[in-house]
């Protein structure tokens, strides 16, 4: 009897302790974000190519996700991505140039998607247009007809003298994507390959413009190097031509 009680006591103690540990490790409130010098040190340590010279800012998306734009010694404008994970501020990714990317914090929830950029001032970009596009299409399978309307929504973003920025997807985009993802996932026949990749049918794009409303090629913001650390979804946003954009007749 005594032995049994002792075992129960030890068992519950272990259970409580591990619960506390798990909470501390995964769910506890984040520490304050590291100071600029520390950030610089860590970036340059894990990825010397970044050669950070100036930390421009720290931009929080929520209390656990932060973007840090920087300028390198070679005058490149880059972006680093940070998250509070496993009880530490983790450096998730580094882009040495700042063409726009889409950070999917929770890949299943488009309201946690952010467009992130740091455009080189030498590119003389005055504003950008972001697009979400799903191509028009149709197919007939065993007599069942399907028509997919073209989806093309646009968001104009002025730079206003600031090279960097972070923007959540507009509400209307999220309202389209949510049922789109649900219907797409329910289409998957198998139980084990249940991942639906909306990117196969839908994509994000952008067009940079100068002050005179002319499309520009952002020479200084592309062809950078990337550093990745672990499990993070940061997607490419492709540069579009105006010819790829539909306008009403």
């Amino acid at each position: 009897m005594i032995k049994q009680k002792f075992l129960i006591f030890v068992g519950s103690a272990v259970l409580v302790l591990s619960a506390v540990m798990i909470y501390w490790f995964y769910f506890s409130k984040p520490d304050s974000f590291p100071a600029d010098e520390q950030l610089m040190e860590e970036i340059n340590h894990v990825f010397p190519e970044a050669a950070v010279n100036i930390i421009q800012d720290t931009v929080s998306m929520d209390e656990r996700h932060v973007v840090v734009p920087f300028i390198s010694k070679e005058d490149d404008y880059g972006v680093t991505y940070w998250a509070w994970q496993k009880h530490k501020w983790q450096l998730l990714a580094i882009d040495t140039t700042g063409e726009p990317r889409l950070w999917k914090i929770d890949i299943k929830d488009p309201s946690t998607f952010y467009m992130v950029w740091n455009i080189h001032p030498g590119d003389q970009v005055d504003y950008m247009k972001f697009f979400i596009i799903r191509d028009r299409g149709y197919h007939v399978t065993e007599g069942i007809e399907t028509y997919n309307p073209r989806v093309q929504m646009e968001k104009k973003v002025p730079l206003e003298g600031k090279s960097y920025g972070v923007l959540p997807l507009p509400d209307e985009w999220v309202s389209f994507m949510n049922p789109f993802i649900k219907v797409g996932s329910a289409q998957q026949p198998s139980l084990f390959f249940n991942d639906f990749f909306p990117e196969r049918e839908m994509f994000f794009g952008w067009i940079p413009y100068d002050k005179l409303d002319k499309q520009r090629f952002p020479e200084g913001s592309v062809n950078g190097n990337r550093y990745f650390n672990g499990d993070v979804d940061i997607d490419f946003i492709s540069i579009l031509n105006e010819a790829e954009i539909e306008s009403p007749r």
Binding site: E244, I245, S247, P248, R249
Partner: peptide
């Protein structure tokens, strides 16, 4: 091609 309406906009 870039001048087009959508039937279901």
């Amino acid at each position: 091609p870039s001048k087009s309406n959508e039937r279901f906009p």
